[in-house]
Design a binder for these strands. Sequence first.
RNA 1: GCGGACGUGGCGAAAUGGUAUACGCAGCAGACUUAAAAUCUGCUUCCCGACAGGGAGUGCGGGUUCAAGUCCCGCCGUCCGCACCA
Length: 853
Amino acid sequence: MSRYNFRENEAKWQSAWNERRSFEAHADPARPKYYVLEMFPYPSGKLHVGHVRNYTMGDLVARYRRAQGYNVLHPMGWDAFGLPAENAAIAGNVHPAIWTSENIATMRVQLQRMGCTYDWTREIATCHPEYYRHEQKMFLDFLAAGLAYRRESWVNWDPAENTVLANEQVIDGRGWRSGAIVEKRLLAQWFLRITAFNEELLDALKTLDRWPERVRLMQENWIGRSEGARVQFPIGGSAEAVDVFTTRPDTLYGASFLALSPHHRLAQSLAKDDPALAEFIAECDRLGTSEAAIEAAEKRGYRTAIEAIHPLDASRRVPVYVANFVLMEYGTGAIFGCPAHDQRDLDFARKYGLAVIPVVLPPGEDPARFAIGDTAYVEDGVAFNSDFLDGLSVAEAKRAVGERLEKLQRGERTVAYRLRDWGVSRQRYWGCPIPVIHCPDCGIVPVPEDDLPVELPQDVTFDQPGNPLDRHPTWKHVACPYCNSPSTRETDTFDTFFESSWYFLRFCSARAPVAFDRAAAEYWMPVDQYIGGVEHAVLHLLYSRFFTRALQRCGYIDLAEPFAGLFTQGMVLHQTYQNSAEEWLFPKEVGADSDGQLTDAAGRAVTISRLEKMSKSKKNVVDLDDIVDTYGADTARLYLLSDSPPERDLEWTESGIDGSWRYVNRLWRMVSEPAAELPPAGSAMPRDLAPALIALRRLTHKTIATVTDDLDKFRFNRAVARIRELTNALDDIPAAEPGAGAVLREGIEAVTRLIGPMMPHLAEEMWQTLGHAEAIADAPWPVPDPELARDDQVTVAVQVNGKLRGTIELPRDAAAAEAEEAALALPQVARLLDGKAPKKIVVVPNRIVSVVA
RNA sequence: GCGGACGUGGCGAAAUGGUAUACGCAGCAGACUUAAAAUCUGCUUCCCGACAGGGAGUGCGGGUUCAAGUCCCGCCGUCCGCACCA
């Protein structure tokens, strides 16, 4: 019994593909292109099996489309800037550049061992000046176009990483990476004006019909468009006014208070003369976003000394609060509260004893009696207690108030978005330098294009906290390029989402002297199939969509949407172990005591915890090299594709990978020790075959058809199941029948070609063993014989009163009468009918005969 | 709280409204073997039954239909995303 020698074969075929340069892509306008891209990895060290699910799927798509005749671009690169490199530098006294390039070298070999069809001539690493110089130029272009700007803003300060986090990167008040509690600080920051494309980014989601609905919805919610009005409330006894944004201008007459964000200009200025308010604001800052999550229900306000005048009724005044739940970054940083028709406002009003004035009457209620209890009324109704609005519906009242406010110049109808501009400044070393210079005379000036790139200095130390660029002895000191005054460079670097926002364009012409060759980009773009984790559903994908538009506006390319098709794959989960101290343990750290109870080295009880995403911190990673050494790349690829639907999470199990390994060997035996003697490759199929052999041929062609369909629809697990079914059937071939060898060859060849995108090395070896000179990587995708792919004989179910009572065999597309007759002839059916005529018979051709007794 | 997804054997999971549990994992029994591994064969939703067969069955309760895992209404549960968004 021969075992499949994956070690020899995988190396052999990988070098054969290399020598033939099989996977180098060349733009060719005469051929249809297909750009398949997996989200490029951060070179964190070593790959584990969880990382490669994504690449296995991408490679399957690339090989499948290639076989279908597309000119495929399938590149790979490295998202090489980022904080872990600096952390490693601090922890291990190794330079980030060295740490990164060593990781890249390791991971490149790992990926190559997986046998993926990457065009390595296009490999990029974003930390190379030849890459990042182009984004420095882009930034200068954005600056000139008004798409980049600098302003002071409240930022989330991560004290562990010494860096600023975007709001999106703060999770439960903690840094999304470090987990440190985030503080608030005021800092001058560079921003990209993503909000200039609010409407477009939202509207174009509708056109992304090959994106998962879920991702589109998440982006829609993230952009968060809401229609409403800006309303001006004058402040009593002063010339000032507070601008408020509301989505419910129709409830303006129900206003009973104003609430300002603690960071609102007015709140800040009031605090100067009000120590208690200053303390309240400080408290809000201290709580930050962290405890707010814990005390989600705790809405607190501070009543200031001032009052606001109702914009439509100068005789009414409402108190002005500073409240911990009003966001400075959304709307105008101030709201009016209408407790009767907003639950949060109602809670606030009850807490501070404020008036609750209902102004929307629910259908069928008596205006004289209607009162609000514990629940605000937020549905549609008819305006009342509202002067000129009385009798109008909510929608009508919104419009009427808007018109009145506009006429009085006390406000206007407007649209607010939740989306905020993208802060791109990071106080870090290992990132792309922001190409500006701070001149004492000229102010902030761009670095002249001829001076690009601004390269990171290599000679830095990590022996002190903070940004090494800041304390570098010479790097930041330059003469102003415009007036020659002694000046300093910007020491902030870009958010690493900057690099990943255009790398897919760079791949189109990875060695071009410009960011990307326009003709190449216009040939290859957009990406036809992008594949990555759903964790990037909002940030990376939204930034890339914005960036592409920004480049379009700056004349780089005529393209708005970079990714025509998107697939988000599930995570790979693995069992975890935790001891009684809730520390994660490696499997090898777990033993058992004499009672069979699992324990750790210190004798603490160990429990098998829930399945978790593979991660170093949970100590449940399965090393890719171990798996490839033990089972080979094809086995790993098969398992990653076969066990769960691709969009769902996959549980990694030892027995599962074992099962895939068994199947690899079974396939190999099928060609190395065929069940019937195979005629030479290319032999004609004999004419007269036994029915069992014809059935086998039918199954072969049907499998080609269904697998093709499954691959088109990303149903890889189903495709594997179909191929296994065919394998099972081929194993049972009646080998003694005349023509069995020819039928077996046809079946085996189909299997070999169908597994080509999944297990490429094995497929090549099988194909060669079957006597083919051509590589399967260059062979076309099989096409089923349509006549054979359809059954000529079908099994039709027979139901009586909705219950299955038997089956009948009929020729395909048999007449309804014939089916009916055969069904009624079944003894079971006759018995149940008991001689009576059926009330009704429903015949669905080729499927079912349903008899109603 | 809002939005979304999901709920099927011991487990991962299949199933254009038409034979529920394909394919695989695990388990059990057997063959081969000195033995083990590997491989092969058979069984494996539950209940009754020796078999034949019968009954129940896709989280729960209703409904539409000749026919519902699938469609509709109402619950329950799990997971994910967002969250003082005015």
